[in-house]
Nucleic acid binder design. Structure first.
Length: 525
DNA sequence: CCATCTGGCCAC
DNA sequence: AAACGTGGCCAGATGG
C-alpha cells in the first residue's frame, strides 16, 4: 500500500468507508472562504475551527509530524475515525455554511465544488495507462547520450564535476573557464546564476568566447534538458504505476491553487512536456488501452475569451465571434496593417502582448520577453490599449475594487483576497506584483470555473448516454478521456457540445477535439 | 535520518 | 535575472 496514498483512500472508499468525503467537504468550504489561507490542513481544522475529537488519527496528526499518509494508519483506526467524524462534519458544515452564504459563496460550493469532488475521485481511480516499455527504451537512449556529454565535458573542463550542482557549475564556468560575468546578477546565495536563459545569453553573445567555452555551454544546456526529462518523467513515471491496476493514478488537489484551478501531484500529470520535440516524445507513453482511443478536448484561447467578455471589449468579441486568428488580429491593429498581410513576426508580437495582458502587463516585462526596448514596449502597450480601450478600463476597475473591497471575483463569484492592497503600504515592486496577480485572478479563475462546470455536465452526460468513455485528466483548459471504438463518433460530439455550452460568453467558447492512440499522436476531428 | 530551502524548469 | 499570472518535481545544499 505504499505506492500512492490518495489511491489507497479511494480503495478504502470502495470498501464502503467514507474516508475523504467529510474531510474534503470542509476543506473545500474553508478554501472557498479564503483560497490563499495557508491553514487549511487537518491540524488547522482541528485546532482552529473546532474542537476536533482526539481520535487516534488526530493524535497522530497532532504528534508533530508535518506529513501523514493514510497507509501509515491501520484500517481499523481509519474506520473508527470515520465513525467519529460524522458529528464533526455536521458541526463544521453548520459552522461554515453561514459564512459561505454571507460571502455569497454558497452556490459556488453547492453547484460547482461539491459536485466536482466525486468526479475527481473517479478520475483518480480510473488513472491513465502508461507504456513503460517505451519509456524504458527512451531512458537507455538518454543515458547513453548523457554519458557522452559527461565525457566530453570532462575533457573540455579538465576535471570531473557534478553538473547538477549549480554551485559547482558556477565555479567551473565563471572561475575556471573565465566566462564573462559582465552584467550578470548573482543569486540569493551569492554565486552567479547558471539558469538556461543566462547560458543562452552568454552563447548568443558568442564573439568573445573561445570554442571550448562555446562547446561547454552547449553541452551543459543539452545535459540539463536530458537530465530534466529523464529524472522528472522518463524514469519517474514507470515507478508510479499501481501494481493492482497497472495504471498511473495522479492526485488532483481541489484546493491547491488560489485562483480556483486544480493542481495535480504524485505524479503531476499537468506538466507533461509538449513544447520541444524531444520532450513531446514522452507523451507517446500516455496511451489508450488496446483498441481504445484517447480523446483530448481543449478550450481554444479560453482566457482571452473570458477577458473579452468581462471587459466588454467589442473588437475582441467580434474577432472571436468571427472565429478569427486572435493574435493576428491584435498584430494587425498594432501595426496598422490589413489582417492578410500580418507577418509571422508581427503575429508573434501580437501573441506576446495578448498573453502579457492576461498576466498584467508592464513595459518592462514586455521588453524583457521581446526584442523591444522598454521605450518601444511602452509605445506598443499604448497602441494596444488604444486598440482595446475596454481592457485598460477592466484593469483599472479591477484594481480599484481590490483596493476598496480587498478582494476580486470571478464571473461565478469565486473570491481571492488582497488585504495587502487594501491596507498595507508596500514597496512599489511588491505592490505591482500583487496588482498583477489581482488582474489575472478573475481571468484565470473564471476559466477554471467554466472548466469545472463542463466537467460536471460532461460526467453526467456520459452517464446519461450510457457511455463507457471516461474522463481521465484535466490540464486547466484541456480534458483527456479514453473511449472504446464504437463510442468515438457520438461521444466526441457530446464532449464538444457540453464543453462549448458550459457557460455563455459574449466571445463564444470554442473547443478543439483531437483523437489518437496516445497523448502525442493526436489528429484533429 | 528527516524536513526545508534553493535553483532550476516542466506545464497552462 | 528579470517588474508577467498559476502550479509541482528534481537534485543539491543545509540544518535539526
Amino acid at each position: 500500500m505504499a505506492h500512492n496514498a490518495k489511491y489507497d483512500l479511494t480503495v478504502l472508499r470502495r470498501h464502503g468507508l467514507d474516508v475523504t468525503g467529510p474531510i474534503d467537504d470542509t476543506l473545500l468550504m474553508a478554501w472557498l472562504l479564503d483560497p490563499s489561507s495557508r491553514s487549511l490542513g487537518l491540524k488547522a481544522l482541528a485546532n482552529d475551527l473546532l474542537d476536533w475529537p482526539m481520535t487516534e488519527l488526530s493524535e497522530l496528526i497532532g504528534s508533530g509530524r508535518k506529513q501523514i499518509t493514510i497507509d501509515q494508519v491501520p484500517i481499523a483506526q481509519v474506520g473508527a475515525y470515520c465513525g467519529a467524524d460524522v458529528d464533526v462534519t455536521l458541526h463544521l458544515f453548520d459552522l461554515l455554511a453561514p459564512r459561505l452564504a454571507a460571502a455569497g459563496l454558497l452556490s459556488l460550493y453547492h453547484e460547482i465544488e461539491r459536485p466536482l469532488l466525486p468526479i475527481l475521485t473517479d478520475m483518480e481511480m480510473a488513472g491513465v495507462l502508461l507504456d513503460s516499455t517505451f519509456l524504458g527504451e527512451m531512458s537507455v537512449t538518454f543515458t547513453k547520450r548523457l554519458a557522452e556529454i559527461d565525457a566530453e565535458l570532462v575533457s573540455v573542463v579538465g576535471h570531473p564535476f557534478n553538473l547538477r550542482s549549480t554551485q559547482q557549475l558556477s565555479q567551473v564556468l565563471f572561475d575556471e573557464m573565465k566566462l564573462p560575468t559582465r552584467g550578470l546578477k548573482k543569486t540569493a546565495s551569492g554565486h552567479y546564476s547558471t539558469a538556461a536563459d543566462v547560458l543562452d545569453g552568454l552563447a548568443a553573445a558568442g564573439d568573445e568566447l573561445n570554442t571550448s567555452q562555446q562547446r561547454g555551454l552547449m553541452l551543459i544546456l543539452e545535459h540539463r534538458q536530458l537530465e530534466k526529462l529523464r529524472g522528472t518523467y522518463i524514469d519517474a513515471l514507470p515507478q508510479l504505476v499501481n501494481p493492482d491496476t497497472g495504471r498511473i493514478h495522479t492526485s488532483f488537489s481541489q484546493t491547491g491553487a488560489v485562483t480556483g484551478r486544480l493542481s495535480s501531484s504524485n505524479p503531476n500529470l499537468q506538466n507533461i512536456p509538449i513544447r520541444t520535440e524531444i520532450g513531446r516524445e514522452i507523451r507517446r507513453a500516455i496511451v489508450a488501452p488496446p483498441g481504445w482511443t484517447l480523446i483530448s478536448a481543449d478550450y481554444s484561447q479560453v482566457e482571452l475569451r473570458v477577458l473579452a467578455h468581462i471587459a466588454h471589449e467589442e473588437l475582441l468579441i467580434e474577432a472571436f465571434a468571427n472565429d478569427q486568428d486572435i493574435h493576428a488580429v491584435t498584430a494587425s491593429k498594432l501595426f496598422g496593417v490589413p489582417l492578410e498581410t500580418v507577418t509571422k513576426q508581427q503575429r508573434g508580437l501580437g501573441k506576446t502582448i495578448n498573453f502579457a495582458t492576461i498576466y498584467g502587463v508592464s513595459a518592462f516585462g514586455l521588453s524583457s520577453r521581446t526584442e523591444l526596448t522598454q521605450q518601444q514596449a511602452k509605445q506598443f502597450l499604448d497602441q494596444y490599449f488604444q486598440t482595446y480601450p475596454r481592457i485598460r478600463d477592466y484593469i483599472e476597475v479591477t484594481l480599484q475594487q481590490a483596493r476598496e473591497l480587498g478582494y476580486v471575483q470571478t464571473l461565478l463569484g469565486r473570491k481571492r483576497f488582497f488585504p495587502e492592497l487594501k491596507s498595507r503600504a508596500l514597496p512599489v515592486n511588491q505592490r505591482m506584483a500583487v496588482e498583477r496577480a489581482a488582474i489575472n485572478a478573475p481571468i484565470q479563475g473564471t476559466a477554471a470555473d467554466i472548466m469545472k462546470i463542463a466537467m460536471i455536465r460532461l460526467h453526467q452526460a456520459l452517464i446519461d448516454g450510457g457511455f463507457q468513455t471516461r474522463m481521465l485528466l484535466q490540464v486547466h483548459d484541456e480534458l483527456v478521456l479514453e473511449a472504446p471504438p464504437d463510442e468515438l463518433e457520438p461521444v466526441t460530439n457530446v464532449i464538444r457540445t457540453t464543453m462549448e455550452s458550459a457557460y455563455v460568453l459574449d466571445a463564444p467558447l470554442k473547443v478543439d477535439v483531437e483523437v489518437g492512440p496516445n497523448w502525442r499522436d493526436l489528429e484533429s476531428l
